[in-house]
Design a protein around this nucleic acid. Sequence first.
DNA 1: ACACCATTGTGTGATTGTGACACAATGATA
DNA 2: TATCATTGTGTCACAATCACACAATGGTGT
Lengths: 252, 252
Amino acid sequence: MEKFITVLQDIKTLFNRSLSELSIDCVVFGFHDEQLKVLLLRAKGSDSWMLPGGWILKTEHLEDAAYRILKERTGLGSIFLQQFHTFGANNRYNGREIMARLGLPPEQNFFPERAVSVGYYALVEYSLVEPQTDMMTDECRWWDVNEIPELLFDHNEIASRALKALRKQFDHEALGFNLLPEKFTLVELQRVYETILGLKKGGLDRGNFQKKILGYGFLERLDERKTGGAHKSPYLYRIDPAKYGAYLRENE
Amino acid sequence: MEKFITVLQDIKTLFNRSLSELSIDCVVFGFHDEQLKVLLLRAKGSDSWMLPGGWILKTEHLEDAAYRILKERTGLGSIFLQQFHTFGANNRYNGREIMARLGLPPEQNFFPERAVSVGYYALVEYSLVEPQTDMMTDECRWWDVNEIPELLFDHNEIASRALKALRKQFDHEALGFNLLPEKFTLVELQRVYETILGLKKGGLDRGNFQKKILGYGFLERLDERKTGGAHKSPYLYRIDPAKYGAYLRENE
DNA sequence: ACACCATTGTGTGATTGTGACACAATGATA
DNA sequence: TATCATTGTGTCACAATCACACAATGGTGT
C-alpha cells in the first residue's frame, strides 16, 4: 500500500508537468517468424492489455513525446515513426474507470475527465527490442497481429486503424526494410510485404518483386551471401542511405 | 471597452467548458473561377489572417467539434471533412502572444500556456458558402490558394500540409465532385483535377480522363445537357449515391 | 564423390493499362 | 447555312505488369 501511494504521487506530479487532456498511443510493429507483431502492455494487477502510451509534457514537442515513449518501452532510439490519426471520441476514455481498475475510489478521480489521443505507429527491428514495463504495467511483450486480445479503452480501434494506415502507406512507399536487420535477402523482404498485405507465402511473384524493388534503386547488393539454407545462397542487400534519401525526395 | 470585457467573459466561459489545451483548425477548400480557394478569417482589429478553428467542448466528439466549427463559419451542414494531421510543436502557439495581439497585458494571460491542434480539411461547394465571422474576427472571405498571406501561429504550415494531403488523397480516391454543384460536366470536373494537381488547362487528356472517371462507375449521366457555350453542349452528370457507396467500400 | 533438390538470378512473351492523337457530331454564332 | 470551338468516342503505340521458364548454385543424403 505504501508503494501504491508513491505511485499515485508520481502520477500527480506527472499530470502537473504534462498536457493532461492529451495523450499519445503507439502501435509498435515488429516482424518475426514470418508474422507481423505488435507490442502490448498488461496493466498492473489485471489481465487487461493496452498499447504503449503516455502523456505529453508541457514543454515537449508532440513528436518528441512519441519518441520518448517508444524509447522507454523498446530501448530503441532511431525508429521509423509515423503519426496516423488522432482519436477524440468523447467516451473513448474515462478517468473514473481507470481509478476503479487501480482499485481506488472513483469519486476521488484525479485523472482528467476526458482525454484525446494522438496515434503513432512505429516500425522496428524485432530482435533489437527489449520490452520494458513502466509503473502502470507489469508485463510487456509481442503479440501476433492476428491474435490481439481485447484491449483497454479504444485501443483495439487504434491498433486496427494503425494496421490499415500501414498497409496504405506500404502501397506507395518502400518501407519494408524498417522491420528487418541491416542486411537482408530479397526473399525476406518479400515475406514482409506479403505478410503486411495479407497475402500467403509466394503471393507475390518472386521475379517481379525483385525487379520492382531493385528498380527503386536504393538497395545495395553486398558481395556477401546468406548461407545455411539447403539451396543456392542468396545475396544480402542493405539500404544505401544516400540513394534512399534521393528516392524519398523524388516521391515527395 | 465594455464590449471587450463581455468578449473576455465569453472566452473564459468557453475555456471552462472546453478541452483548453486542444484546438481544431480547418482548411476549407472551395473551387471558383478555375481556382482553388481557401477560407480565411481576419483577427479583430488587425491585419493578421488565420484559419477557422476553435476549442473542443469537454463533452464533444472531436469530429463533431470540427463539423460545428465549419457550420458556424460556412453555414453548411453536410460537408466532406477529413482529419489529416495533428500539430504539436511546443512553440506553435503562445497564450501571451494572443493577449498582446488583443491589446491586453500578457502577464494576465488566461489562454492555455500551450495548445495542440488537430487539422481537418473540408471540401465544399463554393457557391453555397456564406462566410461568417465570430467574436474573435471581423472579416471572413475566400483567398486564392496561391496567394495565401502570412498567417498567425503555424497556420501557413497547416494550410500547406492540408493541400499536400488533399493532393495525395486525390491521387487514389475520387473526391473532385465535392467541390462542384450537384450537376456538373466532365470537363468541369477535369478542371478541378487539373487545378488541384497543379496542372495547366488541358494538362490532362480529355478523352482519357473521361474514360477513367466513368470507369469508376458511380457517375450517372443525365438526359439534361449544359447549354450556353458556343459549341456542342455537354452532358451533365451527378453522383449516384448507391454506386458511390459501393465504390468506396471496394476501395476500403 | 556425386546425384538430387529446393531455391535463386535472370530472362521472355502475353496481357493489361495508359498516353497521345484522330475524327465525326453538335450547338451556338454570324 | 457555313463556321467553329468543343464534345463523345475510337484507335494505336508504348510502357508497365503479370505469368511463367530455365539454367545456376549450395547444401543434403547416399
